[in-house]
């Protein structure tokens, strides 16, 4: 294909990606070093209150935002260097927390607690998702041909459901005296409030994520199982391999490229954990990095948005995903080069 035709085919897509992905990235970087604020002026105001003997007047210094000709609030943008980053990671509090060796102090800083949760969430759910997906795939592969279709249909439901709604639906099962809370209370014989403390909410988020993504791993593994070489399996049987050994030494190595694929996708997606926080209303107890940025972007009481801090937190989030993906991607890269 000639360069020009290629450019025309790819052009619109590249244009969209440059305008709406690459350009915003640059602007986020720029915003994280600058702060846009209303310009304030100090004015002397005389406030008079009617008293018994004529009015009593006091003068006060007041700050008020400057208005421009159209009556809009005048803003100015200043370069602040790393100040926004400092506001996000709060190095002073971090230092005291480390000096005192207090984990609790560290977790009181929103950024560090968000980072802690996001990383634990990403790493912990990975083996659970892969394991559950593989188990379902093996079980479906093993079952009657007739019920495979319906089973795949049911399995796709948790995957396809809107994440916020999925989280909400699990929340509703536990809400108040919801049946699952009641069931757990009956089983453990103690009072349970699933939404009162951080660790139960966190646990539910892990369970929800595995429920939500395991079907994807299942479908991918199931497709992989269809291409397992039967000759290799039979050879293994002749060599006296047990069922477990066949799984361990024939089937799993065959699925290894898929494991890497799923790991990469899972790292990308789980690191973005966000909808769970909305669905479980967890923001008072547990937050994630995406939620931190989201919170800065929301309007505060005065209608202002902390754009600069949001940008700083976004850049830090991005550095995190780069490090997280860097390790497995470099391995894939080397293998590709090697082969």
């Amino acid at each position: 294909m000639k360069k020009k035709t290629f450019a025309i085919f790819v052009g619109p897509s590249v244009f969209m990606m440059v305008l709406f992905i690459a350009a915003p990235l640059l602007s986020v970087l720029w915003q994280s070093f600058h702060v846009t604020q209303p310009v304030y002026e100090q004015v002397e105001v005389e406030i008079c209150t009617p008293g018994l003997l004529g009015s009593v007047c006091t003068t006060e210094m007041k700050t008020r935002p400057l208005l421009n000709d159209n009556g809009k609030i005048l803003t100015e943008t200043t370069f602040v260097g790393l100040q926004s980053y400092r506001n996000v990671i709060e190095p002073d509090k971090l230092r005291t927390a480390i000096a005192r060796g207090s984990w609790r102090d560290l977790m009181n800083i929103r950024f560090w607690s968000a980072l802690r949760f996001t990383l634990v969430f990403t790493i912990l759910t990975l083996p659970l998702v892969l394991g559950t997906g593989l188990l379902i795939a093996l079980a479906v592969n093993n079952t009657l041909q007739r019920i495979k279709g319906p089973v795949i249909f049911v399995s796709l439901l948790p995957f396809i459901i809107t994440p916020v709604i999925g989280a909400l639906s699990i929340r509703w099962l536990f809400l108040g005296d919801g049946i699952l809370t009641a069931g757990l209370e009956w089983w453990l014989d103690r009072d349970i409030a699933m939404f009162a403390q951080a660790w139960t909410i966190e646990l539910m988020m892990y369970i929800y994520r595995v429920w939500h993504v395991a079907p994807f791993a299942f479908v991918v593994f199931y497709a992989g199982l269809q291409t397992v070489n039967n000759d290799a399996l039979e050879a293994a049987i002749i060599d006296g391999a047990t069922r477990w050994q066949r799984l361990r030494y024939v089937i799993i190595p065959h699925l290894m490229p898929l494991v890497i694929f799923l790991t990469l996708i899972h790292l990308m997606d789980a690191y973005r954990v966000f909808e769970e926080i909305v669905g479980f209303s967890a923001s008072a107890h547990v937050i994630s990095l995406q939620w931190l940025t989201y919170e800065f972007l929301l309007q505060d009481g005065t209608g202002a948005r902390a754009i600069s801090r949001a940008s700083a937190s976004a850049i830090l989030t991005m550095i995190g995903i780069a490090i997280l993906l860097g390790v497995p991607l470099r391995r894939v890269w080397r293998e590709q080069r090697g082969s």
């Binding site: 992905i21 915003p24 986020v28 989030t317």
Partner: peptide, 8 residues
């Protein structure tokens, strides 16, 4: 992460 883009 999409929040990065939205802050842009």
């Amino acid at each position: 992460p999409h929040s990065v883009l939205v802050s842009g």
